[in-house]
Design a protein around this nucleic acid. Structure first.
Lengths: 159, 159
DNA sequence: CGAGAATAACTCACTCAGTGAGGTAAATTG
DNA sequence: CAATTTACCTCACTGAGTGAGTTATTCTCG
């Protein structure tokens, strides 16, 4: 293996820091691959990447018991409310989400992912998820606990 | 904390699988936050998210000692070659990359990130990276090793 | 070697996702 | 109960990304 042509100054030779940096690179690589999987799902279903990311976020909200509103979704996606309105209309037109009026706030809306969208996502992401879960379960409990501690710490640092 | 309103059938009650699923969710959350950080960097620098992702990929290539060509970048970003050409032209115009002719293939080009772009990225991502590294170093060696094993296994499963 | 296929990168015309400006209706405030 | 804020929306526009097609270089193999 050839010595990588590293740029001066970027990687000070501190072995502990280098190990931590390597974990960051691994994390970024995993994030990139997740993003590519989403893009591929979008292509095969005729949706757009943003639409898929929105669906995923809506399912996250459902799982966490949070009421998903258009404004909440806009913040989560880092987009303007107008763009989010367009996303919701696209998803609504495709029958992937339903817009239910909020019972507590007449201005707001409650977004619910349809069963068909869940089914569709399951067909595509199911095998991928199974591979990820199998890879995880191949590790011992201690490794899994370490991974969990790392992900929690890093997510906190990213917040 | 209220009991989350989980959808039927999505989460079969297998504690080992549930633990693995939770790691997947943590990973996705971290990936989402990385993406938002990139989007914010893009906004503050007047670039676009794609441009930033391209820069990051080019730096990855440099670090790994891989020759970065437009085609390589297109595959890495999951985009067409035309869109990638546009990205490169934008970055070239902003002085963030240089296009050097490949010495082995007259058709191809070698992309190199300029020092100014590295400096710019360092200013923005430096503090974030420092927080991530500090969070990592707060863990003990065993946890870090577990995190590394997990990320490597999961990246493999995503490939 | 040299014709044909494959590959790397590009230009052009077009589409439509996302933004800025601005509007309506419901909730909150003093 | 007017004034303000909040939630969501429509409209007009910009420009990132795509499909079609081009040029130039490299590879393949009779």
């Amino acid at each position: 293996m050839p010595e990588p042509a590293t740029r001066e100054g970027v990687t000070p030779s501190d072995p502990e820091r280098a190990a931590a940096l390597e974990l960051v690179h691994l994390l970024r690589d995993a994030a990139l691959k997740l993003e590519l999987a989403i893009a591929e799902f979008a292509r095969t279903t005729g949706l757009h990447s943003t639409d898929v990311r929105a669906l995923v976020s809506l399912l996250d909200a459902e799982r966490a018991g949070v009421e998903a509103t258009p404004t909440w979704l806009a913040q989560r996606l880092g987009m303007t409310s107008q763009a989010t309105t367009a996303v919701i209309h696209r998803l609504e037109g495709a029958g992937h989400v339903q817009r239910l009026g909020s019972r507590t706030d007449g201005r707001s809306a409650r977004l619910q992912v349809s069963d068909s969208a869940v089914e569709l996502g399951w067909q595509f992401f199911g095998p991928l998820l199974d591979r990820m879960i199998a890879a995880t379960q191949a590790l011992d409990k201690q490794q899994q606990a370490g991974a969990r501690a790392y992900l929690e710490a890093v997510t906190e640092a990213l917040g």
